[in-house]
Design a protein around this nucleic acid. Structure first.
Lengths: 224, 224
DNA sequence: GGGTGTAAGTGATAATAATCACACGGCTAA
DNA sequence: TTAGCCGTGTGATTATTATCACTTACACCC
């Protein structure tokens, strides 16, 4: 994936630095830039009127952000992008990107590949959620975080991103309490464990079995 | 959207005719062709081990089909495509499409626009489903069918595609009985009605209000 | 050390949705 | 004409998930 991004560096743009908690943009903002992440992590979220928050991605190095309004007549961001930790993104103005896409078919094809990949991620998430309820949503979220931010140690996988119960619940559109109970159960079953506030997955295959994981590969089954 | 498709006609391909109920491809098949629909309607579905069926789209004139495996190393269709009624599609081999995309940036950009649109549709569906449960799923499905296949008559909207309860349930990943009860309630509240086996929506704004519809427009909020 | 704030954990209850079981009506083919 | 099939409709029950109301744990600050 990283090789796909390299091409975007040839396009004039500027580097933006964000502190943890700082917003890159809010949903509803007029959209002017296409971004990709150089370092750090960026939460992609959506607010619901009720005050609930839906988390969609946690973008990391090599991820693109803000591509959806690219071809809209009145481009508006439909999500929020907020830095989880100190982050750096590369910002390219839409008109600049347009002109490069028109000149360089290879670039357009690259973008097609990336967006196609996103589409597949989205579909696989959709499936997990619709066919296996909240259990599907939560287990799938854990597996995706493990694929994106997991470090293999002691025969298990440590998710190296600190996540509160509420944050995890937002990724699976679940009530915090429900998520908490699910995690407690998994802990009781020795499937997961906590290590210094991080989630340690002992038996990822248990999670995969339960949601009839199609083993679609880390390129698809991730949270980026 | 139709104007976006016109360009694909310049690419060599062949016309495939399907009878109602005939499969264009099955999930798991080796993928060789990119298609777009010339006439008729094509169901896009996915099977679950349990025997459940998840319906994703009902493609119609101008819709593209089978674009997801386009850039995969070992292209496999991940959905089924089955004709709802007599249909005609235009089939372009992947390598042919690749070479045209490389030569014609405008074509690549067009495809980007179309796939970007699909992504937005998918996101809006996701939102409806995750934030408003089965009610969200069902009302959203009705609104999308109305936008794609609705004919305005008598101050309401007639969905011109015949759909069984089971088929509708598949679009919202709901049990047939649950869907049936929801429709019965809507009928009791005079929101919908049946006319010769077709669904007639009297008060689409009721449905929109209930799921806090963001009025994203027919380009996004449809089932194609 | 005590106060404050935030996150985790949990019981009780309510709301939502699935499942099971079966009745009914319309259509069709023998 | 009748049996069989398919889709619809509905009651009863169970399973799943959200909500409310609290307690506990822990970090941080003055």
């Amino acid at each position: 994936m990283d090789s796909m991004i390299r091409q975007f560096y040839e396009i004039p743009g500027r580097i933006v630095t964000l502190k943890g908690g700082e917003y890159l943009f809010h949903e509803g903002d007029h959209a002017k830039y296409f971004y990709f992440v150089r370092s750090g992590q960026i939460f992609i979220t959506k607010f619901a009127e009720s005050g609930r928050v839906l988390s969609l991605r946690l973008a990391t190095k090599g991820s693109i952000i803000g591509e959806l309004p690219l071809f809209e007549e009145t481009p508006i961001y439909i999500f929020n992008a907020v830095a989880q930790s100190q982050s750096e993104v590369y910002a390219i103005e839409f008109p600049t990107l347009h002109s490069y896409l028109e000149k360089k078919p290879a670039l357009a094809i690259n973008l097609l590949k990336i967006i196609g990949m996103h589409m597949r991620k989205q579909h696989s998430k959709f499936r997990d959620l619709l066919l296996y309820g909240k259990k599907g949503a939560i287990y799938s979220t854990l597996i995706r975080f493990a694929n994106s931010y997991g470090r293999e140690i002691d025969g298990g996988i440590l998710i190296t991103v600190p996540l509160t119960n509420q944050e995890l619940a937002n990724y699976s559109a679940t009530a915090r309490e429900s998520l908490n109970r699910m995690l407690s159960n998994l802990r009781r079953q020795n499937v997961i464990d906590m290590r210094d506030g991080l989630i340690f997955i002992r038996d990822i295959n248990f999670l995969k079995r339960e949601i009839q994981c199609e083993n679609c590969g880390r390129e698809i089954c991730n949270i980026e």
